[in-house]
Design a protein around this nucleic acid. Sequence first.
DNA 1: GCAAATTAATGATTTATTCAAG
DNA 2: CTTGAATAAATCATTAATTTGC
Lengths: 232, 232
Amino acid sequence: MGSMNMKVHQFTRGLWDHESSLTLGCKRLRPLAPKLTTTVITTTIAATDSISSLDIKSFIKPESGPRKCGSVDEKKETPQVEAQSGGTRWNPTQEQIGILEMLYKGGMRTPNAQQIEKITVQLGKFGKIEGKNVFYWFQNHKARERQKQKRDSLGLTHSPRTPSMAATITLLDANKEIEREEESQYKRKQRSWGVLEWCREEDDEDSSRWSSGGEEGDDKTLELFPLHPEGR
Amino acid sequence: MGSMNMKVHQFTRGLWDHESSLTLGCKRLRPLAPKLTTTVITTTIAATDSISSLDIKSFIKPESGPRKCGSVDEKKETPQVEAQSGGTRWNPTQEQIGILEMLYKGGMRTPNAQQIEKITVQLGKFGKIEGKNVFYWFQNHKARERQKQKRDSLGLTHSPRTPSMAATITLLDANKEIEREEESQYKRKQRSWGVLEWCREEDDEDSSRWSSGGEEGDDKTLELFPLHPEGR
DNA sequence: GCAAATTAATGATTTATTCAAG
DNA sequence: CTTGAATAAATCATTAATTTGC
């Protein structure tokens, strides 16, 4: 209790302290009440801290609780590969990199959750890996590929000696344009994406057991598609 | 197969087509082979498409498969609320907004997966909501609060009439500083975060019903912590 | 009063930057 | 120096609020 180092300094700005309860429902006051059923409860909220005494208050707490996320708990007993990264970051194997690059070259840019999961499962056969690793890999690869290209083109632009050079630049720019157009595709919409998962605490250097372990024959003809779904 | 609308135009740049198989393992050639056991398989990869014939090939495919993510499958038999997620976006109720703002004011900035899950559960009592909604809300709220403040401070700086005004500005700036320092906290590190989840397909525009309904008493004294864990 | 058109908010994604492990 | 990980900034897209013409 007393241990709850409530460092309030972060919001010393105003002196909303109790005011918060007031500002709560009115802050931005939604233009017009969208729902009806909620109105009642809303009143409850407006009533300062009735909710906080009910649920909110329970929100306040330093940190603790279960380790793993309450989602997929299936722990595969494949001690074969593991450990390796008590709290370290993913260290891709060459097979994994190879596959990822292949997919990237195939056109995959931002796989959705489903695709990521499948990829993760596949890559899991070659080494420890999580979904986020796949996600980040694509993010980073894409970004760095782009900046490298940009850097190159700029560097070239800096010393345009021969006409062929200029042509090259033009080409690069053109490609960049194409790429961009292709990628954003007007309305990227419907990316069917998600965020959030794998929790992990900070302490506990102990296990950090991994998932996606072994080589169970779980290939139910899963498949992912690299290029954009359809030319919407 | 022929139906696979392979729109290659995205990568018309080079003309890597078969070259990909070659460039695969060498492209960026990792500094030094991290693993040993993998080396063997690596060779396999280098052998052009042995892997692709095994697993990779199965990756290529437009899109299909199961609807829901293959994770938490527990389907709650609460037909009362649901559906709706056909394709619309989360539309928070006032209670949800209120709680979120309360947490925000309490200092919560970037809740981790665990916290998000708990929040989601709580907010779920007031209306349909997903973890990503909570995540995004904090992201957006934080960002917009920041830009609004910046805009305000700049705007105010532009017409400093009274001394009290100046004082206000100073305060705002100071607060901004504090906040920033607080937030970035030197090394943000160890955010214990995650990404990826909820999939969702596109079709099925069926219901679009709303949620909110549930008032089941599922409060197992769960709690989240708003302020930063500890003054590291 | 109302519905179409316009504007303002804000939910959802993507991109750019930054930090730190190795 | 490379690159995995994480966050912040920029952007897109959709919904609600407001305005406008009837």
